[in-house]
Design a protein around this nucleic acid. Structure first.
Length: 237
DNA sequence: GCGACAG
DNA sequence: ATCTTGTCGC
């Protein structure tokens, strides 16, 4: 699939929903990526700002060595944003920017971790899940706040690093409220695609350091994206 | 009209 | 997401 087929500027929102409904059938979580298969792991994030009435967005992808946790590559994309944010349609807004940055990578990551949900989503098609069909790689979704689905609320995990509570929708585990540090609010993890929930949980926890509740690649992408915004936004002090 | 609302 | 100061704590 090509980004041209889904670019928000070229399709309508209902076409987007149809595309997602078709992609959803192809999601594979059983044939999961394994920990030992991962050499390079990428974190993805997007930041926004406004300049003379125009909204801009910058996406950064940070690739690290899974074992040594050192940065091996960075990629960036920047563009005017004309699609408004709508809960449940984040991919419609930021996927084009993500794909553009991903195309610039010379290293092929074995896993992409997103700032946003995977199948923990009303249509089981959060940005991490949707993105995997362009990246053709396993993806994980990490949300900093809970996106409520079908009236299902999450339960607080015990206040111990590593503890979690499953988020169950229609008899299926969609994701987990995961505590990555004691005394720190949980994050909300879910499978994107091509990976199962136990491995998603294991990898997420393995990529946590004491600087953030978010896994290292996502944290680094978040820092980079804000640094770039400061650099590009001429109206910023 | 009111509430909900990933980023 | 972004707008924003100080402040409490390790």
């Amino acid at each position: 699939m090509k980004i041209e087929d889904i670019h928000p500027l070229k399709i309508e929102i209902d076409s987007f929903e149809i595309i997602q409904a078709n992609l959803r059938k192809k999601v594979k979580l059983e044939t999961s990526a394994k920990d030992q298969d991962i050499k390079f792991c990428a974190g993805v994030d997007v930041a926004y700002w406004e300049e003379t009435g125009v909204e801009w967005g910058v996406c950064s992808i940070i690739v690290i060595d899974y074992e040594t946790r050192t940065i091996v590559e960075k990629a960036v994309s920047k563009a005017e944003i004309h699609v408004p944010y709508r809960p449940g349609y984040l991919a419609y807004r930021e996927l084009p920017l993500v794909i553009e940055a991903a195309k610039k990578l010379t290293i092929t990551p074995d896993l992409f971790i997103f700032d946003g949900n995977g199948i923990l989503h009303p249509r089981r098609m959060g940005i991490a899940t949707h993105a995997s069909f362009f990246l053709n790689k396993p993806t994980i979704g990490i949300a900093k706040s809970y996106f409520k689905i079908d009236g299902v609320n999450f339960k607080m995990p015990k206040n111990v690093a590593g503890s979690y509570k499953d988020i169950i929708v229609k008899n299926e585990i969609y994701g987990r409220a995961l505590r990555t540090h004691t005394d720190v609010k949980p994050i909300f993890i879910s499978c994107g695609n091509l990976i199962d929930l136990p491995m998603t949980t294991e990898i997420t926890l393995k990529l946590i350091n004491n600087e953030s509740r978010l896994p290292i690649p996502v944290r680094l992408a978040d820092l980079e994206t804000k640094r770039l915004r400061k650099m590009f936004d001429s109206t910023r002090s």
